[in-house]
Simulated assay, not measured.
Amino acid sequence: MVSEIRPDHESDWAAMTQVATLLGVGTPETIRKWCRQAEIDGGKRPGVSTEESAELKRLKRENAELKRANAILKSASIFFAAELDRPQR
């Protein structure tokens, strides 16, 4: 929308303000961020794309889950190793 109405305004900010009003978005800053992210996703601006960001979040969650599972397995192995070291009756 911003690119469509940009020629009718004196600046990008004015166009973003108009779009924010039309969409009922509280602040034109939100529209500015959306525009910048669209430029990144389109390869027109450097930065982390939406897809890359989502993949990074997924990998961080997976890494945390694997660390928890590893801690549980370490605790279990210590417990069972101690059981094996105890003298049998």
Rank of each mutant, 00 (worst) to 15 (best):
F80W: 12
L66F: 07
A81V: 03
E4W: 06
W13K: 09
E51C: 09
N63M: 15
A38G: 10
E55V: 10
V19L: 01
L56M: 13
M1D: 12
P87I: 05
I5L: 06
M16T: 00
A64K: 10
R32V: 00
K44D: 04
E10A: 15
D85N: 15
A15F: 01
G42S: 06
M16Y: 02
E10M: 14
I31C: 03
T17Y: 03
L84K: 13
D85T: 15
L23Y: 10
A71E: 08
A15K: 00
P46L: 02
E83D: 10
S3D: 15
N63D: 09
A69K: 11
T50V: 05
G43P: 02
A20L: 00
V19T: 00
G24Y: 04
S77G: 03
A14L: 08
P87N: 07
K67C: 07
R6K: 10
I31L: 03
L66T: 05
H9Y: 14
W13F: 11
A38C: 10
T50R: 05
D41H: 06
I31Y: 02
E55G: 04
E39P: 01
F80V: 09
L56E: 13
A69F: 06
K60R: 14
W13E: 13
E51S: 14
A81T: 11
A81S: 10
A69V: 07
C35R: 05
E62A: 14
A82H: 04
S11G: 03
E65C: 08
E52Y: 05
E4K: 07
K60L: 07
A54E: 11
N63R: 12
N63S: 13
V25P: 01
K57R: 11
